[in-house]
Simulated assay, not measured.
Amino acid sequence: MVAGPGLARRSLRHLDEPEWRSRAAAHRCRVARWTVPHRERRRRGEAHPVLDFLFTYYSLRPAQLERWHPGPGIVLRGPSAADFLGQAGYRRHADGVTLDLAALPDRLRSTADFVGALLAATVERAPQLGCFGLHEWAMVYRTETPRHAAVPLRLGAEGTDAVVESLSVRCTHFDAFRFFTPAARPRNAVSPRREDQIHLEQPGCLHATMDLYKWAYKLGPACPSELLADCFELAVAVRELDMRASPYDLADLGFAPVRIETPAGRAEYARAQAGFAERAAPLRARLLALCRQVSDAVSPQRSGERFRADRRDS
């Protein structure tokens, strides 16, 4: 099937096969810094308390992260471009193969609607920088079964509990709050629910910043792999701060602690948090623009349904 006239009217950029193959290879090389060691650890049965999170909590498999997608507005030329035709949304074009947003599954447009609304609400809020990463401490508060049981606590169980009790816990992110221990939940300033996410998400939150990676891959083949990799690299850096500021002793893995139990450590954390919020802002803007592109794309079937509805209303 050749992409329809609606797509042809748009301004498209053409990539010859050597160029797009080079971009695909560069993307694989870029993310291999993390995917290759992760595979090697899995073969050895070795856990990594910091980096495994990027492949376990986040559901994109290493092979999927390594797969390159051009995103919308690109025509791939050359014989090998036909290899993309087996994937959702790709269509033949007069000059090669392109991603047709209107041909993507309706579920992806629904995802784009939600993610776009979430990102648009987030960008309107000022970053909150006073949480100091206490969500990780709240996940081990007064429990005998911490999430990373094989990793020692820097201050021991009693010292860790004392830090939680001496500071204000202010986590606004549901997907962090839901891992709090039962004893820690009443100590939080708010009780986030899934349905509150759009109303509570704010750009200073480390988890909201890491989740840009999740929103990028949830947009599927519509998200250019260069943007996906940008979000992944930021998520890696944020995860490292997240765990350096945690109660765990990760010095043997090369992660120096950010001692948020001290005023100097809290100041260090807030500075890093502000830096990540600044780095995240252009990525959030790019994802928001992409969400709007996907949401606005109307498949021929939906267009026909809309036409028939208009006729009934007239």
Rank of each mutant, 00 (worst) to 15 (best):
G45D: 05
L60D: 07
Q293C: 08
A121L: 04
A82D: 06
H27F: 05
A63H: 10
E124G: 06
V298E: 14
R41W: 09
L134F: 06
A235T: 10
R125Y: 06
Q197C: 08
H93S: 04
L118H: 10
Q64C: 09
R67D: 12
P152M: 12
Y58H: 14
D100Q: 06
A25D: 14
R28H: 13
G133I: 03
V75D: 02
G220C: 04
T111Q: 11
P182T: 07
A267N: 01
R61T: 01
H14S: 06
A184F: 05
T122V: 08
R306I: 14
E66Y: 10
A3V: 13
Q273Y: 07
R42L: 15
L287D: 10
Y141C: 01
E165T: 03
R92N: 07
A277M: 03
V123H: 05
F307G: 01
R306L: 12
P247C: 12
A3T: 13
V123F: 01
G45W: 04
Q197D: 10
T172E: 09
M1S: 04
Y141N: 00
T145I: 00
S314L: 14
E17M: 07
L134N: 02
P247V: 06
I260T: 14
Y213V: 06
A82L: 10
Q197W: 12
T181N: 08
R30K: 05
D296P: 02
G159K: 05
L65E: 01
Y217F: 14
D249C: 09
